[in-house]
């Protein structure tokens, strides 16, 4: 069976993966907002304080820091994974290049400059600074998003930290002061560690385990020793 052309696929089916995850993202963010409000209000009650509304909660630093500390770790994960898989291999993994293919590969293999195809992206054909940037654009975007989300999480974490300091009648800290607080690093490390475990285990689990039909897996009958996306 040949692959269907884009004309046979409507907008929804052609973008099903991205749209489905986008929809689940919205639903789960809503779930976080509702359960977060309930959790926040349980603590307010325990401290003898007034409960807050859903709107007040989602415009609070308490909600913001819980969202952004998770975002930053996801983009760190993808940024590191995209770069690490250029240079490091895992023998037998569907997530890895074959041993011996480490590195950025030749212009011919990457179809850039004079090796570009007719339908190659414009910035792949030029062979100048545009190709240099385009060749790294996915990693650059993930790296930039990591830095931006990490800075955002530090700003909102700083505000949340200071409101807790004030509630406990302690002095607020400056933003730079917050970057040296255990709270900031605890929030960062607790998210980072889970991403590293998930990525490392996924890379090696895909050596011996299969998921029929998934591009994240080797075809079911392919040998364990076979590395790379063979099907």
């Amino acid at each position: 069976m040949s692959a269907a052309s884009s004309k046979e696929y409507g907008f929804l089916r052609a973008n099903a993966l991205s749209l489905a995850f986008g929809a689940v993202f919205v639903v789960t963010l809503g779930g976080q907002a509702i359960s977060g409000t309930a959790d926040f209000n349980a603590q307010q009650k325990a401290n003898g304080l007034e409960p807050v509304s859903l709107l007040e909660y989602v415009t609070s630093s308490s909600f913001g820091v819980d969202v952004m500390e998770n975002w930053q770790s996801e983009y760190l994960q993808f940024f590191l994974y995209i770069f690490a898989t250029v240079w490091l291999v895992q023998r037998g993994s569907s997530e890895s290049k074959k041993p011996g293919e480490e590195g950025t590969e030749s212009d011919k293999e990457q179809k850039i400059g004079r090796h570009a195809d007719e339908d190659s992206p414009k910035w792949a054909k030029t062979g100048d600074w545009r190709t240099v940037i385009f060749s790294r654009s996915l990693g650059l975007l993930m790296g930039a998003l990591f830095l931006l989300t990490w800075v955002a999480s530090s700003l909102v974490g700083w505000a949340a930290f200071n409101s807790e300091q004030l509630a406990e009648r302690q002095d607020p800290v400056s933003w730079l002061g917050y970057l040296g607080e255990a709270d900031f690093w605890n929030r960062s490390f607790q998210n980072w560690q889970s991403e590293m475990l998930a990525v490392g285990s996924m890379a090696v689990f895909s050596v011996y385990l299969r998921q029929r039909g998934s591009p994240e897996s080797k075809p079911v009958g392919v040998a364990h020793a076979e590395t790379g996306q063979t099907g």
């Binding site: 415009t59 969202v67 955002a152 700003l155």
Partner: peptide
């Protein structure tokens, strides 16, 4: 491929707006 561009731009917009919104919450000290 035209439709895919909208999904691409949509994701990027949501991420950037999220970053701006949460940063603003932090800077306003909410």
């Amino acid at each position: 491929m035209r439709g895919v561009r909208f999904v691409f731009a949509g994701y990027l917009l949501v991420i950037v707006l999220g970053i701006v919104y949460v940063s603003a919450l932090g800077l306003m000290g909410r």
